[in-house]
Simulated assay, not measured.
Amino acid sequence: MNENQQWAHEELTKLMKNSPTYEDQAFYRALDQLMLKQAQRLVNAAGELDGRSWADK
């Protein structure tokens, strides 16, 4: 997780804790999970690209 993703995760966690309604808390939690999944997909894609560039052809 890079610096911006870490900051967004921390902000979403604060928003979850301070939200008065369940709907808002659920929205922020889902947004945080989506962001974490996207970050993992970026790492996987970068690794795949690196692996393909070094693969024997």
Rank of each mutant, 00 (worst) to 15 (best):
P20H: 07
K14C: 08
K14A: 10
L36Y: 04
L34R: 06
F27Y: 13
D24I: 05
N18V: 03
K57N: 12
N4K: 14
Q40E: 09
W7L: 14
E11F: 00
D50A: 08
K17G: 03
N44K: 12
N18K: 04
Y28L: 06
G47V: 00
R41M: 04
L12N: 04
R29N: 13
A39L: 05
E11T: 09
H9I: 12
A39W: 02
W54F: 10
R29C: 04
D50L: 15
M16F: 00
L34T: 13
Q33W: 02
E3A: 09
Q40N: 12
R41V: 02
R41P: 00
K14D: 12
T13W: 00
P20A: 12
A26I: 04
Y28C: 07
Q6N: 09
H9M: 14
L34Q: 08
T21H: 12
L31Y: 05
L42V: 08
S19I: 01
R52E: 06
W54G: 00
Q33E: 14
K14M: 09
E11R: 08
K14N: 05
A26L: 08
F27I: 11
W7F: 10
Y22G: 06
A55S: 15
Q40M: 05
Q38F: 11
Q6I: 06
A30T: 11
E48V: 14
V43T: 10
T13M: 02
Q5E: 11
L15K: 06
Q33K: 15
R52M: 08
W7N: 07
A8S: 05
A30Y: 03
A30K: 07
A45E: 07
Q38H: 13
E23D: 11
N2D: 14
T13A: 15
E48Q: 08
A8P: 01
W54R: 14
A46L: 12
N2L: 01
S53M: 07
S19M: 01
Q40Y: 02
W54Q: 09
D32N: 11
P20G: 03
A55E: 15
K17C: 11
E48F: 12
A46V: 04
N18Y: 02
Q38S: 12
Q33D: 11
Q6G: 09
A45W: 10
D56M: 13
M35C: 10
A45Y: 09
L31W: 05
H9E: 13
D32M: 07
L36H: 13
Q33T: 08
Q25E: 06
A45G: 04
Q38K: 12
Q25N: 02
N44Y: 09
N44C: 03
D56F: 13
E10G: 05
L15G: 00
P20K: 12
Q25T: 02
W54T: 10
R29Q: 15
S19A: 15
S19W: 01
V43N: 11
G51P: 00
D32W: 03
A45V: 02
R41G: 00
L15A: 12
A39S: 09
D24N: 10
M16Q: 04
A46E: 13
E3K: 05
L15C: 02
D32A: 12
Q25L: 05
